[in-house]
Amino acid sequence: MVNRVMETNKFKIQAKDIHAYYGTHHVIKGIDMDIKPNSVTAFIGPSGCGKSTFLRLINRMNDYIEGFTKTGDILLDDKNIYASNVQVEQLRKEVGMVFQKPNPFPKSIFENVTYGLKIQGITNKSDLEETAERSLRQAALWEEVKDDLKKSALALSGGQQQRLCIARTLAVEPSVILMDEPASALDPISTAKIEELIFELKEKYTIIIVTHNMQQASRVSDRTAFFYMGELIEYGKTKQIFLNPKKEKTENYISGRFG
């Protein structure tokens, strides 16, 4: 019992006083946040509130953006991901990312799923096949594509493409998966499948999802963070945020009375 309490108090990701700037534009203003392992955290907030920027800080995808600077630290398993000895590529294998629009590589399904292994230099065919099957199964896509893994990924439907992108991310066995509006370009049925998938993946992974869909946030997440104008206005259990938000801004935003 004591052990379990200890376990749940350990944080997977800790952000400490994060400020971020595009040039002189202050886009994230002092955010602190702790995220527990094996949970789904939803980031909500109006466009331009900094939630995507914050998400991309967690796997350092902002590194390449011209004029981007940040202060503060982000800890992954208590290690600072911005420390000088951290290899960005290694970090990104640990912290996978799924994007808004499905973005499969213009290659076969198999090549897509095994891309992450290939760039790590793994060429053993049976290893690749094993991983492909495992991750496609995890992404609930295996049954649909197992007979034509050689087919171009671009021939899949939008929903399938997105699950392929998730499978591709799972193949490198990350512990954290960042999802930037993963279902915003999909139809309701595909969206439901993705949400179901997120629910299942929670057992093994820590998931952070940015979404504009309030219902989606309330459906899939354990905790919800509301961002506004670069600040973290409210962060708490999803049920509490949606039933009884503490801040008026949160209330106004989630009930659609913004402004």
Binding site: N59, M61, Y64, E89, Q90, L91, R92, K93, G96, M97, F99, K101, N103, P104, F105, P106, Y115, G116, K118, I119, Q120, C165, R168, T169, V172
Partner: peptide, 27 residues
Amino acid sequence: VPRSIIQASLAMGATRWQTIWLQQLPA
């Protein structure tokens, strides 16, 4: 070549050159 492809590759942990060599140049 769509930025999304590049982002996807980088997010998988590919280096810049791996991304260029394996994704951008073929595309």
